[in-house]
Amino acid sequence: MDNTTHTTRHIEIDYADGSPLAADDPRGAMARSMQAARAVIAHVDATNAENSTPCTEWNALQLAQHLVAVFERAAAGPTDQVIDDMAILADVAIDDLTDAALASARLVHANWSTDAAMTEPIDVPWGTLPGAAVIGVYAGETIVHTWDLAVAIGVDLNWPEADVAVHHEMSKIGIPESPRDEFMPFDPVVRPGADAPMIEHLVGWQGRDVDRWRVA
């Protein structure tokens, strides 16, 4: 389904949660990215579930299911679960998406509540990294896929700008501009105009066609 022209719905999110975490603690970034994702997931319904998305292999419903799965994978990090064995798409019906996203977000908060989780090595599909790096990557993945879902269903929102800027810099380090082949499954870098919002610079670095998908 070609849905590059959208009816825009704006979401205004209050990211001030009174968290005692330091400003640069990636658990805070993960919390804010999940806030954004949950707000967008709440707008997935029968009228837009089959919309195409920037992730060409998934429609809007599947992308929402993937976001829930990202939460579940993030929650598994400090546990004995093998993340590589976990599903890419959560087995969640459309009417249950909002509740599933909330439940898995709460599990993320619970499992990452101790500072020890930030230094322990964690096995993830892309290697073994300290917890702080792992939760930071999942925060970045969540915010990028939230943009994917938002533009697919015609939602506009305020983004956690400081987090997005950090994710952009980390993407430039972790996802080189070239080569991008079967070992680096990202489309070529897309550079929006200099005055484009930071979220478009982030998703453009990860190969999204921001001009095509920009919410009107």
Rank of each mutant, 00 (worst) to 15 (best):
M1E: 14
M1T: 14
D2K: 07
T5I: 08
T8Q: 12
P20K: 05
A23G: 08
A29D: 01
A29N: 01
M30H: 02
A31H: 07
M34N: 02
A42I: 03
H43S: 08
H43N: 08
D45H: 12
D45R: 08
T47W: 11
N48P: 06
N48T: 05
A49Y: 03
S52Y: 09
P54M: 05
T56R: 12
T56D: 10
A75H: 05
A76F: 06
V82K: 15
I83Y: 03
D84E: 15
D85C: 06
I88T: 15
D91E: 15
D91L: 12
V92E: 01
A93D: 12
D96A: 15
D96F: 14
L97S: 05
L97M: 11
D99Q: 12
A100Q: 09
A101W: 00
S104E: 06
R106M: 13
N111W: 04
W112K: 03
W112I: 00
S113G: 12
M118Y: 10
T119V: 14
I122F: 02
D123C: 15
V124T: 07
P125Q: 08
G127H: 00
T128F: 07
I135M: 00
Y138N: 03
E141Y: 05
E141C: 08
T142P: 01
T142G: 04
V144F: 11
T146Q: 01
V151M: 01
A152V: 08
I153L: 07
A162Y: 02
A162C: 10
D163V: 13
D163S: 12
A165F: 01
V166T: 12
H167K: 13
H168P: 07
S171T: 13
S171R: 09
K172T: 10
D181N: 10
F183C: 14
M184G: 10
M184C: 14
P188F: 07
V190N: 01
P192Y: 08
M198Q: 14
E200R: 00
E200S: 04
E200F: 10
W205V: 00
Q206H: 14
D209F: 00
D211T: 12
D211G: 07
R212Y: 06
W213E: 01
R214C: 13
V215G: 01
